[in-house]
Design a protein around this nucleic acid. Structure first.
Lengths: 289, 289
DNA sequence: ATCTTTTCAGTAGCATAATTACAGGAATTC
DNA sequence: GAATTCCTGTAATTATGCTACTGAAAAGAT
């Protein structure tokens, strides 16, 4: 993770303050300390109040803002408000050996929410619409994925039949090949891959396409697989591949699956809804209380 | 949705503006219109600029702020910043028949992020720590779940072995019974259920407990299942059970799984990490680019 | 160790932005 | 049709954020 990333305008300002704390001037550090101690207190504070709380002069507060990369005190307050809106009261997204479960919890939830936000801002809604069109028109759908993406495929396979579209999920290499080569026109293959460069998944895309089926890619990175799909939905996330960093990509992918299944359902015959209601009732009957 | 809820201080300010739009003065409505049209534009705008854009006088802008329940223009900007941090550019969380894919996308991502935030603020970190303790000490782990919770179970089963803990995931009713009754002391069963009242999952919890194994519950609602677990992690979400509302609960549950697996991994022998690094390398080799 | 240079933090003043007081005008009511 | 109420803009006021400058402290050089 590069240095310029840390000063990125979209980075959580509290995170920036925490990281830069040590490199700051002595007086600026006083400001940083009181802010990190109780960030929400400064949402409605003026420069004068902030200066008083930190026991420094007002220009020092302004200089502090400049030092952490804000264009002024106003800008700082704005970014503080945004940071606090995402909930994060002074959490640090990098996991440390010393972190207890509670801290790990805070950091991972922070990270997940931030990443989802990131993915949302980057997705291309036009290709998404294209994908919905294709799925609405599909006679059948097959989902393909390995590992974490296999989980996403299975999840999709659970959701789509609810709306009257027969579909399957293939997570085994051999099953994938068999299923892909037995597809045909009118059917849609959804290939799911975080890296987009796993060799076998590319082969699957080609196989399916060879039968006349359409191929939609749910891919986490700009990658070779994209060229082998009719429509590619890029789901960009903050996934750094450190050992302890959990894979956020599948969360984003699952949310996209929600979007697709919901959008498709809304486009199809409303009669489906009554059938779903009936099914939900049956599920309820399985429960004791 | 009660009236006092709509003017709640924690409510999304854009939502408030949208709802109150019709009840406003004529000039105020002009202000509301330009803000709703492009909210982010006003993050760094002054009163004078806002007034100019809306073609009204500066005091009107101030009066508009007061009308929608803000204590001033500053306060308004702050709340606008928070609203935009959660991304929601004038979306309405309820899905409408007429919504296109792009709108569905916005709404579902909004909803997912908000719900995750909700879950984060409500989870009990002490029981989470308990669960981590139990998992760290476990000789083996079994995950149980049906349907969407089955997906979560499988995901967990993929993650935990990375850190040297043998485990399995059971999503089939018969397999679940067999596996649960063959557990024993030192082992941990993790039962996953959104409702917490599915009859068979309660039986599984009892079966596992009968063998001397510990039972951890990942449950979405206060429910009967809780009484059958040694430790219960309640994951509260905004899940309303409308037909078109996607199940956010599994996303929250997956994130909790991330937390658990990460926290457990950090507590175990660091030697594991080198083994994981080696494994990741092998995975990389499977890729073409 | 002393002088020079550089960095740092505070005082004072300035410019801009938010707010309030007031007054003319439109809409509503009687 | 007159009176009242409610809007909305002009002008003045206040407070807030920001800049220029100066003295002090720290770092470096001779």
């Amino acid at each position: 993770m590069s240095a310029e990333f840390m000063t990125d305008a979209h980075q959580n300002i509290l995170e920036i303050v925490r990281v830069m704390q040590d490199t700051l001037r002595k007086s600026d550090r006083k400001v940083a300390a009181v802010i990190l101690a109780d960030p929400s207190r400064f949402l409605s504070a003026t420069v004068a109040e902030t200066a008083m709380i930190a026991n420094v002069s007002q220009p020092t507060v302004i200089r502090f803002c400049a030092a952490i990369g804000c264009s002024g005190f106003q800008d700082f307050r704005l970014r503080l408000a945004q940071a606090l809106a995402l909930g994060t009261p002074a959490t640090h997204s990098v996991l440390l050996e010393s972190d207890g479960p509670a801290t790990v919890f805070d950091k991972i939830f922070d990270y997940t929410i931030t990443s989802l936000d990131w993915a949302r801002n980057r997705i291309d809604k036009e290709t998404l619409s294209h994908a919905v069109e294709m799925l609405v028109a599909a006679k059948g759908i097959e989902f393909f994925g390995f590992g974490a993406s296999g989980i996403v495929a299975q999840d999709a396979q659970q959701k789509f039949p609810l709306f009257g579209i027969p579909c399957g999920a293939q997570t085994d290499a051999h099953q994938q090949i068999m299923t892909a080569s037995l597809m045909g026109p009118g059917q849609v293959a959804v290939v799911i891959s975080n890296t987009g460069s796993t060799r076998s998944i590319i082969e699957i895309a080609d196989l399916a396409r060879g039968t006349g089926a359409k191929v939609i890619g749910l891919i986490g990175n700009t990658s070779p697989l994209m060229a082998h799909c009719d429509v590619t939905i890029l789901i960009e996330t903050l996934d750094n591949t450190d050992v302890y960093t959990p894979t956020i990509s599948r969360i984003a992918a699952l949310t996209v699956i929600d979007v697709l299944s919901t959008a498709v359902a809304m486009r199809r015959d409303p009669a489906q809804r009554t059938r779903i209601a009936a099914m939900k009732q049956q599920l309820r009957d399985l429960r004791s209380a």
